[in-house]
């Protein structure tokens, strides 16, 4: 991992590895930096939010000079729906997507200069029954496979499109809703998906860190099955996959009422059998208790063995060998919202 962008409560920071890790920043001092991405032409993207001002998209050719987009994602004037945060960027061919809070999906066909709402999702017929979780009501994860798309919205569920976003259906069968009896899947709302990752060689294989557990599907989301053997808790936010090895990573937290590592034992857990079983990922985790969490966008993989997680306490843990050994980088950051290997 050569360059790691760290988005925090107070600005963003760049970590560059050239013999040893060097830090620069903050960029956007005083702003929350909530998402990073790349446009189809390679332009770097950052999502900013603020305790005072609005949420905005910024573009850069070099991670140094940034310019705010004039026609960024926005809900129509006069609507009580507010754009509070940019949660994620993704690309599919020449199209760039952004997921936001209040839950919405936007697309850009000019590398992020101009954005338009994806009406089929933003105005979905079920929207009147959507409601937020503790982190807001956010579209935070977007997966693509040609014309197929999956969008994770908290605390609503996973929406699937077969037609490039022209229509969406919710795909949560097998996952209990966040509120209500475990087996009640008849309710129309309330699936709090926290994270998604998919196999690029077979997009029907998707893994899901949910409010209510860890799941996988092998049929594109028609049916989800629980996969938690070996995990100390089934709650958590971050999930990622190293595609070459197939290794999966999650960071279990005790419960939604106490979003901290179980007994303070902070560690990523790794599965090397598609989620059948999990164990602590390698060595290098702190011996001392760590009362800190890992948020959903605070995991990144460079797909050549590098895996990094960032904590709400401001520490970045890094593995360069697909999770066999981990090192805590020697920097302390504000609360980490987002990590990206760039």
């Amino acid at each position: 991992m050569k360059t790691l962008a760290v988005g925090t409560e107070k600005g963003s920071y760049l970590l560059r590895h050239d013999g040893e890790w060097q830090v620069s920043g903050p960029q956007f001092p005083g702003w929350k930096v909530t998402a990073f991405g790349r446009a189809p032409d390679g332009t770097y993207l950052a999502g900013l939010a603020s305790n005072w001002f609005g949420a905005s998209v910024h573009r850069s050719p070099n991670l140094v000079e940034w310019e705010q987009v004039e026609n960024g994602p926005s809900f129509p004037d006069g609507m009580d729906r507010k754009l509070k945060q940019i949660w994620t960027f993704s690309t599919n061919g020449d199209t760039l997507y952004a997921g936001v809070d209040d839950a919405g999906l936007f697309r850009s066909d000019d590398n992020g200069l101009n954005w338009a709402p994806v009406e089929a999702l933003n105005e979905h017929s079920s929207r009147k029954s959507w409601y937020p979780g503790a982190g807001g009501m956010c579209a935070h994860q977007i997966l693509h496979d040609g014309p197929r798309m999956w969008v994770g919205i908290s605390a609503v569920g996973v929406f699937h499109s077969e037609d490039n976003g022209a229509s969406f259906e919710r795909f949560d069968s097998g996952v209990p809703p966040t509120v209500g009896p475990d087996e009640d899947e008849t309710t129309a709302e309330g699936w709090c998906v926290h994270g998604l990752t998919a196999d690029p060689e077979n997009a029907n294989r998707i893994w899901r860190q949910d409010h209510r557990g860890v799941y996988r599907t092998t049929d594109g989301g028609d049916r989800w099955e629980r996969i938690e053997e070996g995990l100390p808790a089934n709650f958590g936010f971050a999930i990622g996959r190293d595609h070459a090895s197939g290794s999966l990573f999650v960071v279990p937290l005790e419960a939604d009422t106490n979003r901290l590592p179980v007994n303070g034992r902070l560690a990523a857990y790794r599965s090397q059998d598609d989620g059948d079983t999990w164990e602590v990922s390698g060595k290098g985790w702190p011996e001392a208790a760590q009362f800190t969490g890992v948020l959903r966008k605070s995991i990144t993989l460079d797909q050549v063995g590098g895996v990094a997680i960032g904590t709400t306490g401001g520490t970045v843990y890094l593995s360069e060998d697909t999770g066999d050994t981990w090192t805590a980088l020697p920097f302390a950051f504000p609360r980490i919202f987002a990590l990206a290997s760039l």
Binding site: S50, N51, W52, F53, G54, A55, S56, Q68, V69, E70, G72, S74, F75, P76, D77, G78, M79, D80, R81, K82, L83
Partner: peptide
Amino acid sequence: HPTLRVHLFDEESRLRPHV
């Protein structure tokens, strides 16, 4: 400076609460 609009005003053209 069109980029100021989203920071000073909300979707209902009201001054943001913390501005």
